[in-house]
Write a protein that binds this DNA or RNA. Sequence first.
DNA 1: GCGTATTCAAACGCTTTTAA
DNA 2: TTAAAAGCGTTTGAATACGC
Length: 280
Amino acid sequence: MAGENSASAEATKLNTSEEGATKQRSTIAFPYAPLGDTIELAEAIHGNVGLGECDDDQLAVWTKQSPKSSGFRVQIASARLFGLITSPAGGKYRLADLGSAIVDPNQTREARANAFLNVPLYRAIFDKYRGGVLPGQAAAMEREIVALGVSDKVKDRARQVFERSAEQAGFFAHGRNRLVMPGFAARQADAAPPPPPPADEPQDEKKKGGNGGGFDGHDPLIIGLFQKLPEPEADWPVAARLKWLQTAANIFDLLYKGDGGGISMSAARAERSPRPQHDD
DNA sequence: GCGTATTCAAACGCTTTTAA
DNA sequence: TTAAAAGCGTTTGAATACGC
């Protein structure tokens, strides 16, 4: 996706050329308007010119905005970042493949998920917390967002737009404290072929995301948790083990009834249990 | 140098939450 | 029930970079 790449590249470029400047700029691209607002743009284009082109004046009228307003500009920029529209010429807009899919009721579920993951920041968060629990506190979530490259000044806005977009894309279907890829593949297997995934989407992620590997019927959180386990005999630092165990405790607390709040992990060095001996 | 596109930052008003 | 506080969404103008 050219728009996404250029936006992301520009974010990096702006930062590197401005180190030390008074104005802090983000190093990772993210939209200022939530997914739902950008879908309105796509619907407006689709409803008036279908797959044809329109100019910004027309689009502004259809969405009841002023073409000069920053809100409209933010919405346009966000729609391009989500991959819903393209701008083949200055001031002209057209639905991208993802945009035409998102206005199709048969494809909208998958298209929304793909649009969400088109955003570098959201992709980074999704990858980082795949199968895990998002920070519960807003401040903690904002710290994560800042760590991924968002300017400290706009961390709250980035978080708000992220949460709304995740909701609208269906990633909060299992609760607002975890990102779960909406399950559309099986449901839409008989529908029209879905749009191609973003170019940067690792193909093996799809294999991991499925409920295969003997985990049929288990919650995606459990599946994701066990997928994070390193291979046997791999070097697994104590800190990483601790993190995994704590995450497991949190997930169990979420998924199962009963008082599990008393479980806490610590890295205190204890006597190791005798490792099963095996002949080499 | 100028125009355009994009990003940033702040202000304002509305909604929701909480405590008395 | 009501008022105060906090949070959130929208809008606006400024700042910045890029292309011509």
